[in-house]
Computed example of a mutant assay.
Amino acid sequence: MANVRRPTPFAVQSAAAQIGAHVATWRKMQRLTAQQVAERAGVSRSSLSKVENGDPSVGFETILRISRALGILQQWEDALDPLATDLGRARAEERLPKRVRS
């Protein structure tokens, strides 16, 4: 069976656009050129442009490298910490399964 690519959901497109705009703002606030950030991140200028323009197909490592170059990688980690949420704290005492099957 051929690998069929499903359309990107609107919520994902919207989040990618918002995150890309935030990345561009972080870069500009630090008065860095796109070339400087791309070099520091070890990615191409076109990859940085894709991120800043909200292309959701950009690889996860690319986004993390750019975030590191901008000094915002720790913010990603903090934002995604499940123990920083009410649900995470409530479930912290439970033994979580190694994987969840459907």
Rank of each mutant, 00 (worst) to 15 (best):
D55H: 05
R95I: 15
R91A: 15
D81T: 05
A90C: 09
W76I: 14
T85F: 01
D86L: 11
L64R: 08
T62S: 12
S47C: 10
A84W: 00
L64Q: 09
E52V: 03
R91C: 14
P97D: 09
S46L: 01
P56M: 10
A41P: 00
L83P: 02
P56A: 10
R89F: 04
S49I: 03
G54I: 08
R40A: 11
A69V: 01
S49D: 09
R40D: 07
S47E: 09
R68Y: 10
I72T: 12
E94A: 14
L70W: 03
D81W: 01
R45V: 05
I72C: 07
Q74W: 11
D81A: 08
D86N: 10
L70E: 03
A92S: 14
A79F: 11
I63Q: 08
E77D: 13
A41G: 02
R89E: 13
S47V: 12
N53M: 11
P97E: 09
T62W: 03
V100N: 07
S46T: 09
P82S: 06
N53Y: 04
R95E: 15
L64G: 03
R68P: 00
D86R: 08
A84E: 10
Q75P: 02
G88P: 04
E77Y: 13
D55Q: 06
L96V: 10
G71H: 01
R91S: 13
L80Q: 09
L87G: 03
R65I: 01
P56T: 09
S67D: 06
L83H: 11
K50V: 03
S46W: 02
E61K: 13
S44P: 00
A79Y: 10
G71K: 01
E61C: 10
P56K: 04
G54C: 10
G88I: 02
L96M: 15
R65Y: 06
P56W: 06
V58T: 06
A69I: 00
A79W: 05
K98V: 14
E77N: 09
E93A: 15
L96F: 12
S46V: 08
A79Q: 06
Q74C: 07
D55M: 05
N53H: 12
W76Q: 07
L96H: 15
R65K: 14
D55W: 08
E94I: 13
D81N: 12
R91D: 10
S47I: 07
S67C: 13
R95W: 12
D55A: 10
G42I: 00
P82C: 06
E77I: 12
S47Y: 02
A69P: 00
R40V: 02
V58N: 01
D81C: 09
P56F: 11
E77T: 08
G54Q: 04
S47F: 02
I72R: 09
V58F: 08
L80E: 07
A41C: 01
E94D: 15
A90T: 05
